[in-house]
Design a protein around this nucleic acid. Structure first.
Lengths: 152, 152
DNA sequence: TTGACTCCCATGAAATTCCATGCTACTCCA
DNA sequence: TGGAGTAGCATGGAATTTCATGGGAGTCAA
């Protein structure tokens, strides 16, 4: 399976179009997708993106529709309603809904960050900040564990 | 398999017609439907909608579940009797029965919310409220589990 | 004959497709 | 190794199509 790796920054034109990085497009195509599914991340800092099969897997996990069952996951329903399937046009572009862009404070350009089986879309500076923070946390953790373990 | 994703708000004209979102129509068409099945949700807050094959699956499931359970059978009777199959007209519209609209307090416009293998029709404000509530609950749940797990 | 419902057409707005361009990275050959 | 040629990509704008929505004519039933 091909993975979403690396990061790419692309411009958003005035019609709201953005090129999905060619590498990501080919990963999507490999898994039979001609569209991407997007949904805002939980904390609202970024937009998550994946192929349709991820959503199908989720649906399978929560079970088929059953009006008599009360335990169907409400979170999953929220997710289904809040996500969008965006077709990738002939030039490899998508149009991200305005409310998603607003939630992640994206304007002008955005950063595509690979996450293996999915990817995220960020406001470039926000991504940088997040990255820095994550690295520091990793370092701190490493320093801490070094007192008991020997790091590899 | 295509899924019902995202949400759309459409107007109901004075003849009672509403456009089924084009995306939803194509999902229905993909599974061979030229009509939609509707039935009020148990709590009465919304209207459930799905393709005929989902109803068939549901019936099968109910039957297999517990043929001796009177409750279950009564539920099934009600469900099937109260459901309506609505034809989708040439312009992609349906006419929702008045009693269903009244039960969900829908007037003027309604919101179609994807749920994967089915979708729901809501009074827009009621949906928003429901969504907000579900998100808060999810947040609480997440915060709680964060003390043991690391969130994604 | 009246009322409800269906089918057909018109319209404006929005979304999608198509085409053109410039840049970058890579290849191939000297 | 360096330089020219080439192919792939991101990007911009224009043209075309789709879609939601409104109104009117035709149909069937009570």
């Amino acid at each position: 399976m091909a993975l979403f790796l690396s990061k790419y920054e692309n411009k958003i034109d005035k019609k709201g179009r953005v090129s999905v990085p060619a590498r990501f497009r080919s990963v999507l195509a490999d898994s039979g997708n001609s569209s991407v599914v997007l949904f805002s991340s939980f904390d609202g800092d970024s937009i998550n993106a994946c192929g349709m099969e991820v959503m199908e897997g989720l649906l399978e996990k929560i079970g088929a529709f059953d009006p008599f069952s009360e335990d169907r996951e409400a979170d999953a329903d929220v997710l289904m309603a809040e996500s969008v399937e965006l077709p990738i046009d002939g030039d490899g572009r998508i149009v991200i809904p305005l409310d998603m862009l607003a939630a992640a404070e994206i304007e002008g350009s955005c950063l595509f960050a690979g996450r293996g089986d999915s990817f995220q879309i960020w406001q470039p500076k926000a991504f940088e900040a997040r990255m820095k923070e994550a690295k520091e946390r990793a370092r701190a953790k490493r320093a801490k564990s070094a007192t008991t373990d020997r790091g590899a």
